[in-house]
């Protein structure tokens, strides 16, 4: 198979020449910093290294501002965008690195608020409101209830240690690297951008679409919610006594 052989050869040469087509050095540094920082910051036995990880993540966050500026393709980024994005990513990092589920949930509320900011920046007003109401108002409260129900007296062992943090971080950041690199080579909106008025996602605009073009989908969504409700009740009604407690009778 000479074709494959030559392809491998050319691949090795291209890697040696750092000809990664869209991968700026800045982006690579950001990714490496982020991956390393997250690996160290994840809960685990490397207790002493967690502040180092946090510091690396802060550095990555600073770098991210420049990366985002790169991605703006010469346009000026609104200060609010940078703020919301950094807050959202900070909250997200804390959700996955915090050892106490309650705090994770609370950081998730912060994440929702930051994402709402991003949505508002994109003139998606109705969606922003819906997100806050449904997520912060409903879903997160349910989470908190469950967390309270399943509260451990002290730090649970499964909260204190992450599983396979290294492989997980590598997989995640390879994915991110590919997405980011692809974004830069893909055709993107460099032309005229719609004004805020044009793009305003009011209740009227979204609702009209929902009740015309997507009328069947919205019915199906309603059906799905009903089925989910029935299912949740059916599951929750099952008593633990159905199966033997502790060993579960299935082990």
């Amino acid at each position: 198979m000479p074709g494959i052989a030559s392809w491998v050869e050319r691949s090795v040469r291209a890697a040696g020449e750092w000809n990664l087509n869209g991968m700026s050095t800045l982006l690579v540094i950001f990714l490496v910093l982020g991956a390393t920082g997250l690996f160290l910051a994840l809960p685990g036995t490397r207790g002493g290294w967690r502040p180092v990880g946090m510091a690396l993540l802060v550095a990555a966050g600073i770098l991210l501002v420049f990366v985002l500026a790169d991605f703006a393709l010469g346009r000026e980024l609104p200060i609010w965008f940078g703020g919301c994005a950094l807050v959202a990513l900070f909250a997200a990092t804390r959700v996955i690195t915090h050892t106490k589920p309650v705090y994770s949930a609370l950081y998730f509320v912060l994440l929702i608020v930051a994402v709402t900011g991003l949505l508002l920046l994109m003139s998606a007003e109705f969606l922003a409101a819906a997100l806050v109401i449904v997520y912060a108002g409903a879903i997160l409260v349910t989470y908190l209830f469950v967390i309270m129900l399943a509260q451990q007296a002290r730090l649970a062992p499964y909260d204190a240690r992450a599983r396979e943090p290294f492989v997980g971080c590598v997989a995640g950041f390879v994915l991110l690297a590919i997405i980011a690199a692809q974004l830069l080579v893909a055709p993107s909106g460099v032309g005229a951008e719609p004004t805020v008025e044009e793009a305003a996602g009011t209740v009227e605009a979204v609702g009209t679409l929902l009740l015309t073009d997507y009328i069947i989908a919205i019915q199906l969504a309603g059906l799905l919610l009903l089925a989910g409700m029935v299912g949740a009740i059916a599951i929750a009604r099952r008593q633990a006594a159905d199966s033997t407690p502790q060993n579960g009778g299935v082990d």
Binding site: T93, I96, D159, A162, R163, G168, C169, A171, I179
Partner: peptide, 11 residues
Amino acid sequence: VLGMIGFITRR
């Protein structure tokens, strides 16, 4: 990606 990493690593 952060959500994915969290899903894989947190127990």
